[in-house]
Simulated assay, not measured.
Amino acid sequence: MDGDLVFYTNPKSRARLVRWMLEEIGRPYRTEILDYGTTMKAPAYLAINPMGKVPAISHDGQIVTECAAICAYLADAFPDAGLAPPPADRADYYRWLFFVAGPFDGAITDKALGRSIPAERAAMVGYSSLDAVLGAIEGALAGQEYIAADYFTAADCYVGACLSFYMRFGMVERRPAFVGYVDRLEARPAYLRSLALDGPMPAPKPAA
C-alpha cells in the first residue's frame, strides 16, 4: 500500500464522487461513514475538517478536503492509475476541473437559493450566469468524449459527477452533450462499483 488511505464520507452527499474516484484509483482504502449533526460535528472529525463536512481523505498522514482538490490529489498520488495527463498537457485538465469547482458551483448555488445577480453586477461574481457557465462546458464537450484529454481523467470524474447530480435534481438542463457524456462515464466499471457501495442515486428528473 502507498500509505494508509482513509475516506470520510456520507453516502447522501457529494462525497459519492470521491468514492468513484477512489474506485478508479483501484487501491485499498478504509471508509469512515459519518452522520450529519453528530459524528460529522464531533471534535475528532473537526480536527480533520474544521468545516465539519464531507468528503475528506487522509493519505499517509496528509489531509485533503474539497472534492476537486481530492480528485487532483489522488490522480497525482497514484500516477499508475493514469488519471491525470502528463504535466505538459494539463491545461484543459486544470481548466475544467477548477471551472466546475468555481464558476459552476457558484452559479448552481445561486439557482438553488433563488438568488439572481443584477446584470450590472454580473462581472463581480466571475461567472455571469448559469446559462453562460453551462454553455462553456457544453462547448468544451463538443465533438469530444472526455473533457480534458482523449481518455478519462480525474477531471471527468469531477465534472461528470457534478453534471449528473444536478441533472438528476432538475437543476441543470438535460442537454444532449451532457446526457451523452454522463452516460459514457456512468458505464465505467469503477462507477458501477461505487454505486454498489454507496447505494443507488435518485432517478433523473427533468429541470423545472
Results as ranks from 00 to 15, higher is better:
Pro50His: 07
Pro28Ile: 10
Ala44His: 12
Tyr191Cys: 10
Ile137Met: 14
Val54Tyr: 01
Cys157Met: 09
Ser116Met: 07
Asp150Ser: 06
Gly106Ile: 02
Glu120Tyr: 08
Asp131His: 09
Pro176Val: 14
Leu195Val: 07
Ala208Phe: 10
Pro87Arg: 01
Phe98Cys: 00
Phe78Glu: 11
Pro176Cys: 06
Asp2Phe: 07
Tyr127Met: 10
Val172Glu: 04
Lys41Ala: 09
Pro79Arg: 02
Tyr94Cys: 06
Ile137His: 09
Leu97Lys: 00
Ala148Ser: 15
Thr65Lys: 05
Ile63Lys: 10
Asp76Tyr: 02
Met51Cys: 14
Phe99Gly: 05
Glu66Arg: 01
Leu22Arg: 02
Tyr151Asp: 04
Ala161Pro: 00
Asp60Asn: 15
Ile70Leu: 09
Ala107Ile: 03
Leu46Phe: 01
Leu83Arg: 02
Asp150Gln: 05
Met201Asp: 12
Gly143Trp: 06
Val100Asn: 02
Tyr151Cys: 11
Ala123Glu: 14
Ala177Gln: 15
Phe178Val: 14
Asn49Trp: 04
Val125His: 09
Phe165Met: 09
Arg168Phe: 02
Ala47Tyr: 02
Arg27Glu: 15
Arg115Ala: 12
Pro103Ile: 02
Lys111His: 09
Phe104Tyr: 11
Met21His: 04
Ala47Phe: 07
Asp105Gly: 01
Val100Thr: 12
Ala91His: 07
Val125Ile: 15
Pro202Asp: 01
Ile33Lys: 14
Val159Asp: 00
Met171Lys: 11
Arg115Thr: 13
Ala42Pro: 07
Arg16Phe: 04
Pro118Asn: 03
Ile57Ala: 03
Tyr94Gln: 08
Ala56Thr: 03
Met21Thr: 00
Gly180Leu: 10
Pro206Lys: 08
Ala155Gly: 00
Pro50Val: 01
Val133Phe: 08
Ala149Thr: 08
Cys157His: 02
Pro55Trp: 01
Ala190Leu: 12
Gly199Glu: 00
Gly126Arg: 08
Ala68Glu: 00
Asp4Lys: 13
Thr31Tyr: 06
Glu32Arg: 15
Lys111Phe: 07
Leu130Asn: 13
Met21Arg: 02
Gly143Ser: 01
Val179Arg: 12
Tyr45Glu: 14
Arg16Ala: 00
Glu24Phe: 14
Glu66Cys: 00
Glu145Gly: 13
Lys53Thr: 13
Thr9Met: 11
Val125Met: 09
Thr31Ile: 14
Cys157Trp: 01
Asp2Met: 08
Ala136Lys: 13
Trp96Gln: 08
Leu192Glu: 11
Ser128Glu: 14
Ala81Tyr: 03
Met40Gly: 07
Tyr73Ile: 03
Arg27Asp: 13
Ile117Pro: 03
Ile137Ala: 09
Pro118Asp: 05
Pro85Gly: 06
Ala56Tyr: 02
Leu130Pro: 09
Glu138Asp: 14
Tyr151Leu: 03
Arg27Trp: 09
Tyr191Lys: 06
Tyr191Pro: 04
Ile48Pro: 04
Ala69Lys: 00
Thr9Glu: 12
Asn49Ala: 11
Ala187Gln: 15
Leu74Thr: 06
Thr65Tyr: 08
Ala91Val: 14
